[in-house]
Nucleic acid binder design. Structure first.
Lengths: 231, 231
DNA sequence: CGATATGTTGAAGTTAATCAAATCTTGTGG
DNA sequence: CCACAAGATTTGATTAACTTCAACATATCG
């Protein structure tokens, strides 16, 4: 009887988005929560690797030690990220040290043994995980592309047009799935800038900005912005 | 006798970074190049999917058609990105339309049949691909995190400290793996800003900026910057 | 050497962040 | 149901950071 929190956490990982629930339960049996204090070490370089990890809360720093004892930071990860998959599946040993950077840091430890056994027993697991990961990859690649755009308006217009929209004809209604504060953060701008952009576009008559939705009244100028036309 | 260009292109994909060269050759046999003109359609939503694609040059737009014939852009991808893996491995049909957005757009088409056969025959392929993809995922997650940082100096300092560095003791020498122009682009800043930051840090005595390398003379102030200390 | 691409520097102009404060929501307890 | 507190959003004024534009310098290569 696996912990429902663990199942929920597994489902939220891009690794397992499209995995059969029964298989997921078997993976969940090999999982457990780990909570670390800030600065506490999770594993050391060279140790044999029997699991990989997903950060539920807090942050983790992966680093090597240089000749003079200087930390060489390889990655600095926060909630939502996962790590050590390749160590588990390909290398067998951790290639870096890992320490928690925040207090508290809560990790999901996903045991490798059930996972590797399932890879052998369930033919569809490999392709399903690869497909699932790739879908996530495509999103991230595009997110990187978009964050590289200098203009805040360009980023917002792109994001807005990509949101699932209900509505017929010209009037598209976009339900905002997060708070505006979180949207601003997602788009790497301040809430103030987001608010001002929405107001400006409303004054132009392009949109109607509501509390938790935006009605797009004419998508064309937004599309132009999204494609890099000067504001 | 697979086309060496195809092998090279496959190797450069995060999917196949750690795959046995002999397996890679068998995958390569199911690949071919596709070149499209701007606006040309690659596939339509609902068509059966027998391959996935990697963009070698140009760009591809993935979209659905809304009720009024309005394009709903799902992704806008450029060189280096790949897509339709999940369609191939999980769905069997394309969930979106795909058209080239640039002239010319050159794609590598990776046939699904050899891939799916290999998944069954080669036990290690699944875990190896998952591990490889995850490694790339970790990098991307962190890149997103970093691009969200407002300050250009913060981004550069982080990037610099994470580069593989040779050198003993305090003097770390970082060989620049790309042109400064490309580094600037990677970090979402202009070459001018990059140049000015390097010069400023050199005047502070923190680094020595050379043509294609940077010698870090004291990493501490850079680390402070990278951790978000005000400049 | 000359041509082209890459990198550097300076001045001017914009964008978006910051700071500060007002307004609006939402949830809670009385 | 209302008052209140905490949080979210909006607005305005200011400022700092970064881009843009233009010119120059420096490599790289045939």
């Amino acid at each position: 009887m696996p912990d429902p929190d663990i199942l929920e956490a597994l489902r939220s990982l891009p690794h397992f988005r499209m995995i059969d629930p029964r298989i997921l339960e078997r993976i969940a049996e090999g999982c457990r929560w780990r909570t670390l204090a800030a600065g506490e070490t999770l594993f050391l370089e060279g140790q044999p690797c029997r699991a990989f990890y997903a950060i539920h809360e807090g942050g983790v720093r992966l680093y090597r030690l240089g000749p003079e004892g200087r930390e060489h930071v390889v990655h600095n990860l926060r909630a939502g990220a996962s790590f050590a998959e390749a160590a588990l599946l390909s290398f067998g040993r951790f290639p870096v040290h890992a320490v928690a950077t925040e207090q508290p840091t809560k990790l999901l430890e996903i045991g490798g043994d059930p996972l590797l056994r399932l890879f052998r027993e369930e033919e569809r697991l490999g392709p399903a995980m690869v497909g699932s990961l790739c879908m996530h990859l495509v999103s991230l690649v595009e997110r990187v592309e978009e964050l590289s755009l200098a203009q805040a308006g360009e980023r917002l217009a792109r994001w807005l047009l990509r949101q699932p929209a209900s509505g017929k004809g010209q009037r598209l209604e976009v339900e905002l799935s997060m708070s505006k504060r979180d949207i601003a953060s997602h788009l790497a701008m301040t809430p103030e800038t987001l608010s001002r952009l929405l107001r400006k576009w409303q004054e132009q008559g392009w949109i109607e900005s509501r509390r938790s939705s935006v009605v797009i009244q004419s998508a064309d100028p937004l599309s132009a912005l999204a494609d890099g036309e000067p504001a």
